[in-house]
Simulated assay, not measured.
Amino acid sequence: MLAKIEHLAFKNQAGRSKPRSIPKLQDLFAVSLTAADKEIEVLETKLAHFNQEKKALMQQLLMGKRRVKVDEEVVA
Rank of each mutant, 00 (worst) to 15 (best):
14 A>L: 06
11 K>N: 06
35 A>E: 11
33 L>D: 11
47 L>E: 06
74 V>F: 13
21 S>M: 03
8 L>V: 15
51 N>Q: 15
2 L>I: 06
22 I>C: 04
62 L>S: 10
52 Q>G: 04
29 F>S: 04
22 I>L: 06
23 P>E: 00
66 R>E: 12
35 A>T: 07
70 V>K: 14
36 A>V: 10
44 E>K: 15
25 L>T: 02
64 G>H: 01
53 E>D: 08
31 V>Y: 09
41 E>I: 07
39 E>H: 07
44 E>H: 10
66 R>Y: 05
40 I>E: 03
23 P>L: 03
9 A>S: 15
45 T>P: 00
61 L>N: 05
29 F>W: 11
41 E>H: 12
31 V>F: 12
19 P>L: 05
9 A>K: 08
38 K>Y: 08
15 G>R: 08
47 L>I: 13
42 V>H: 09
36 A>G: 03
27 D>M: 06
47 L>Y: 04
49 H>M: 10
76 A>E: 12
63 M>D: 15
33 L>Y: 01
42 V>N: 04
23 P>C: 01
67 R>V: 07
66 R>W: 05
74 V>N: 00
37 D>P: 03
19 P>G: 03
6 E>V: 02
54 K>V: 11
22 I>P: 01
72 E>K: 15
36 A>R: 07
8 L>A: 09
37 D>W: 08
62 L>C: 11
69 K>G: 05
38 K>H: 11
43 L>T: 07
69 K>V: 12
10 F>K: 04
64 G>Q: 01
4 K>V: 13
29 F>P: 00
51 N>A: 15
17 S>N: 10
8 L>Y: 09
20 R>I: 10
25 L>D: 01
27 D>C: 00
64 G>P: 00
30 A>C: 03
65 K>M: 10
42 V>A: 06
23 P>F: 01
76 A>G: 14
41 E>C: 04
54 K>P: 00
65 K>H: 10
63 M>E: 09
51 N>I: 15
35 A>H: 05
72 E>N: 12
74 V>R: 09
42 V>S: 02
60 Q>F: 05
69 K>F: 13
13 Q>K: 05
5 I>L: 15
29 F>M: 12
29 F>I: 11
44 E>R: 14
75 V>Y: 07
11 K>Q: 09
17 S>T: 11
76 A>P: 03
62 L>T: 08
60 Q>V: 00
46 K>A: 07
33 L>P: 00
61 L>C: 06
30 A>M: 04
19 P>F: 02
30 A>T: 09
18 K>R: 08
66 R>V: 14
25 L>K: 02
46 K>T: 07
13 Q>I: 03
17 S>A: 15
24 K>P: 00
60 Q>E: 14
38 K>I: 03
8 L>S: 02
33 L>T: 02
72 E>G: 11
73 E>L: 08
17 S>D: 09
9 A>C: 12
66 R>T: 12
60 Q>K: 15
34 T>L: 08
5 I>E: 02
54 K>L: 15
54 K>M: 13
